[in-house]
Simulated assay, not measured.
Amino acid sequence: MLRRWPHKRERWALLSLGGGLLLHSLWLVSLHVTHTGVMVPALIGMVLLALALWGAAWQRWVHSRAWRVQLWRWGRWGFALWALSVAAYFVWLTHIGTGRPVDQAPQAMVVLGSTALKGKPSPTLAQRLNVAYGWAQQYPRIPVVVSGGMDLGQTVTEAQAMAEYLQARGLSPQRIVLEEKSTSTYENLVFSAKVLRSVGVNQDAPVLLVTSDFHTPRAGWIAARAGWRNLYAAGAPTPLYLRYNAWLREYFACISGWLFREY
């Protein structure tokens, strides 16, 4: 005879965890943060809520056929292994630092774009720009490339929004070089290399790359594939309320980058 599942404590645990994941994801969506790292937790939350509410019926349906029992068992093991891989990736991110430290004066800086809504940088992008501004003050003669194309539904490119943000902070517009065609990290780095060559900086020159802290490993791998040979990384902190969703998105981005041979 099957043990009735879930029991009261299990149901409350599923409701609490599932509801928390779903509500947090919906809150981020309300802030116009919509990417894999938000949608996957939302989906997991909905599944947990469904199990809390209809777990007994699901259990009866699964156990009515032997092959369903086996498939359910494999699915649980697969999910557990996936969750362990995500946890291992998160632990790795906490220990890698923010990339190669700067030990010689860069000849240029490249700032990678992120979401810009209505011409305003997102909190993540604003952090990158704040870090870039600090480095621009330390090296006052180098050009600053802001890299990012047009987001879906927007009328201003990421690069334009970044340039306006830096100018509002006091950076001279003569130092800012726009790269407005890219739609991915790979394109950021390939197109920025072309822009830098047009101002006399080649890919052998020391260049400072500014991006988010969690993004520095993948950006470095892609840069190496794209021909950058003397790149330094400066990682900007990620706001806490976005951090783990951003890490999850980056987890999937690392997998897709490997599959599509971006590095």
Rank of each mutant, 00 (worst) to 15 (best):
I44Q: 03
A236L: 03
L178W: 07
S114F: 03
A246G: 06
H215Q: 12
L28R: 10
M150Y: 09
W12D: 03
P6G: 01
V40Q: 11
F252R: 00
W27I: 15
L189Q: 04
W72A: 15
R141E: 13
M39T: 14
A87Y: 02
P6I: 04
Y251W: 14
L31V: 05
P6V: 05
A219Y: 00
G227E: 11
W247G: 09
A161Y: 02
P206Y: 06
Q160S: 07
W74Y: 14
T124C: 13
G55I: 05
G227W: 12
G257N: 08
W221A: 15
R3M: 10
A224F: 08
W54D: 13
V146T: 05
Q160W: 03
L125Q: 04
T34V: 15
E164Y: 08
L23D: 01
W77C: 08
L208D: 09
I222H: 07
A50S: 13
M39D: 07
E158Y: 01
L49Q: 05
W258G: 10
L248E: 02
R76K: 14
G170D: 04
R197P: 07
L196W: 13
F191L: 15
G99Y: 01
R100G: 08
W258M: 09
L242N: 01
T115Y: 11
M46G: 14
T36I: 14
T155C: 00
A161N: 01
P143D: 02
S25I: 08
G257C: 03
A126I: 00
H35M: 03
W92I: 05
R3I: 13
F79T: 07
P140E: 10
T36C: 11
L43N: 04
V131E: 14
V210Y: 03
V91H: 03
L196N: 12
T211L: 09
S192Y: 08
L84I: 10
H7G: 15
T216C: 11
R218N: 06
G200I: 04
G134Q: 14
R9F: 13
L166T: 00
